[in-house]
């Protein structure tokens, strides 16, 4: 199957390891993955913050770039929910665009949907002998109704000790611009999520959205909990029991980097 990868702008810049993991998994299964370089951003932040006019060109762009594919996959529940749930609304009033959105949106899948529903696989030959807990991010849970698809995939990973996260279905407090527009409430929600993660004694927290994970791991890191956060795709791609090293940040210019 010819699959178009929508890596998402956040992953492109911040979490390339997640996109690499998706490519690894799908190529291992014998599929052709293509990465159309014209892709940028789905426009979720604009649309959810009320900037419809600014989001609309990004809707058109996404449709232009991806409508030729049999299937489109993205390692992000909320970006896929943006396409499937919000694009039809944003395209209202433009009959031609609405028709193209209606045609494309059902073929845009979150990774676990593509694997479980379209390709019919739940066993990926992954090895990851670590204690892992899984947070069900809101848009995947309630807009895409992913159900337990990601956990079914994780349960088949060799050696994994997958422990249930208490109150896994409660929002972590990220919510896009909510995290900075309402930092106090967002932090109060984060505190409970961090507490639940720590209660599991997990080494690794997995989820389907790196944006939510940036928020939770930002809290886990601030408190020096030693818990690592990772997109579940990276666990599914692991065959030697380890994750690739944490993505190194871009090098600082030598003049501005103080020496320790």
């Amino acid at each position: 199957m010819r699959i178009g990868l929508f890596v998402t702008c956040v992953n492109d810049l911040m979490y390339p390891g997640t996109g690499q993991a998706v490519v690894t998994i799908l190529e291992r299964l014998g599929h052709t993955v293509e990465f159309p370089a014209a892709q940028t951003c789905c426009g979720q932040m604009h649309a959810n913050s009320g900037y419809r006019a600014e989001a609309l060109p990004l809707v058109r762009r996404f449709v232009d770039v991806f409508e030729g594919y049999e299937a489109v996959v993205a390692p992000s529940g909320s970006c896929v929910a943006m396409v499937r749930d919000s694009y039809p609304r944003l395209a209202e009033g433009d009959a031609a665009l609405s028709a193209r959105v209606a045609e494309l949106a059902p073929r845009v899948y979150e990774l676990s949907e593509l694997l479980v529903d379209v390709l019919g696989v739940t066993e990926l030959g992954a090895v990851f002998p670590h204690r892992v807990t899984y947070h069900t991010t809101c848009h995947g849970l309630r807009m895409l109704r992913l159900g337990d698809r990601p956990e079914r995939l994780l349960r088949n990973v060799s050696g994994i000790d997958l422990v249930e996260l208490p109150a896994a279905d409660e929002c972590c407090g990220f919510g896009g611009t909510f995290a900075v527009k309402n930092p106090d409430v967002s932090t109060a929600m984060l505190a409970d999520k961090v507490r639940h993660v720590l209660d599991t004694d997990a080494e690794v927290l997995a989820a389907a959205d790196n944006s939510c994970l940036a928020h939770i791991s930002g809290g886990l890191g601030r408190l020096r909990t030693g818990v690592r956060s990772v997109h579940y795709a990276e666990i599914l791609a692991a065959t030697d029991g380890t994750l690739p090293p944490r993505t190194e940040p871009a090098p600082a210019a030598p003049t501005a980097t103080p020496t320790d």
Partner: peptide, 24 residues
């Protein structure tokens, strides 16, 4: 400011050394 609203309680991630598209 205004990104201090993020770092008030969360460490902030930095861009990766290599973007996904450069890796691709």
């Amino acid at each position: 400011w205004p990104l201090s609203a993020w770092t008030v309680s969360r460490d902030a991630p930095l861009p990766a050394r290599q973007s996904f598209r450069d890796w691709w």
